[in-house]
Nucleic acid binder design. Structure first.
Lengths: 232, 232
DNA sequence: GACATAGTCTATCGAGCGATATAAATGCAC
DNA sequence: GTGCATTTATATCGCTCGATAGACTATGTC
């Protein structure tokens, strides 16, 4: 029952801890490329260079392993988005915050989101798993989804609601928010790589995307604000 | 070997043809919700109300059935996008075409794309299968991808290249194109439904999305054109 | 009415899956 | 060194998968 109790390190336990992490890290890659159902426990064990029952031993089950992988990602997401959260919260709390400040915060949110999906360690795997979470229906993916909604979608929605002068639960507000975020999420898909002409997203490429999404977003909300913003 | 020879209709043959179509249509739904690997031949047969070997009989194999489903979708995509293609081609061929015309055509392309993924018959299934094609790695999906690239991405890319005054193979051009298209593709994901607050995309909702994507796109390219459009 | 063809049925194959029972190996405390 | 918990290894279970074999029925032809 190692996968439940807390770990204390020394000789054998330390080795066990290493094994656990090795399984966890290779599992991220394999789940990302093969999907949950597509990845077999035998494949997972082989790539982590452990024997088959090790997965049950450390994580209880294949599902337990998958959930552990997701928890790692969620934790990373939250840590990545954390610095911006209080600033957004403060800006929203103050009714006097200027439009420029709100718009600037929105752009920062989006740029941070680009950095999240295109940068950092294990980029490719996280990117693929994000994309999968939109499609598959696997135990635990709901949590990943929920995390994305809380740390990315919700703050953007609130900022955009203020920029539009509309309630956050207005359809137009949420649909515009989705459209704006869609500018970023499309880069999670492998089709975007091919169409972009490159094999991988280099840091240069990521920075270019950040700048251009910023430019688009500013253009959108400058235009929308200059009119009554009521269509249909 | 019915799945190869051409069909001629009369008594038994006509019944066979009906069975074939019934399998094809229910298979679209099941592949969309369960994925290629997730859908079992037993499930497919049961939902189509045929026995298990019927799939092998009519389509050779599970893979053959899947490819047949994709071909149906691709054909639908091409037929949907066909009316716009010659107008785009003509506009691009003429070096004197005005910016406003180019921008208007781009918006029409995007609106038509919205209608494709959110409207028509078997909407939900096609939408889900589009989303899956971005992630899964299944026989034949490459063709679907290729079709989307040729009928949606490529024309938009050419129009945007002209609007930016940049070559079509410039990274900025393709990345901007992806960002703009991303405004639409995000609505293929089920997460977009929940975040949008609705259970399904009603025609009203689809029209609202069309209008708002149009507005965003116009704002983006009016702003970009008004400056030298050279960043990073 | 005999025959060939088209279509459908039941039953079953071999392969791969996740999971486990069981036991050997490893390092710790005493 | 002996007892004990932790970690790794072998062998195998029960199940579902895609696919097929082969018998049976319905239809159109002559």
């Amino acid at each position: 029952m190692v996968h439940i109790v807390a770990r204390h390190r020394s000789g054998t336990q330390a080795r066990g801890e290493d094994t656990r992490r090795r399984i966890l890290e290779t599992a991220l890659e394999i789940f990302a490329t093969e999907g949950y159902e597509g990845a077999s426990t035998r494949q997972l064990a082989e790539h982590a260079d452990v024997n088959l029952p090790a997965i049950q031993y450390y994580f209880g089950s294949k599902e337990g392993l998958f959930r552990a992988v997701l928890e790692d990602i969620i934790e990373h997401t939250e840590r990545h988005m954390a610095p911006l959260a209080p600033r957004v919260k403060a800006a929203l709390a103050d009714p006097m915050t200027s439009r420029d400040t709100l718009l600037d915060l929105l752009c920062e949110m989006l740029q941070s989101f680009v950095a999240l999906v295109l940068g950092g360690t294990q980029i490719e795997s996280r990117r693929l798993l994000f994309a999968r979470s939109e499609v598959e229906d696997t135990p635990g993916l709901e949590q990943l989804h929920e995390s994305g909604r809380r740390h990315v979608f919700a703050p953007c929605l609130e900022l955009i609601a203020r920029l539009l002068g509309r309630p956050a639960d207005d359809p137009e507000t949420s649909l515009r928010t989705l459209a704006v975020i869609g500018q970023v999420t499309i880069f999670c898909h492998k089709g975007a790589l091919e169409a972009g002409g490159a094999e991988k997203f280099t840091p240069d490429r990521a920075r270019l995307i950040q700048n251009l999404v910023r430019e688009h977003t500013i253009a959108i909300f400058r235009a929308v604000s200059s009119k009554a913003a009521s269509l249909q």
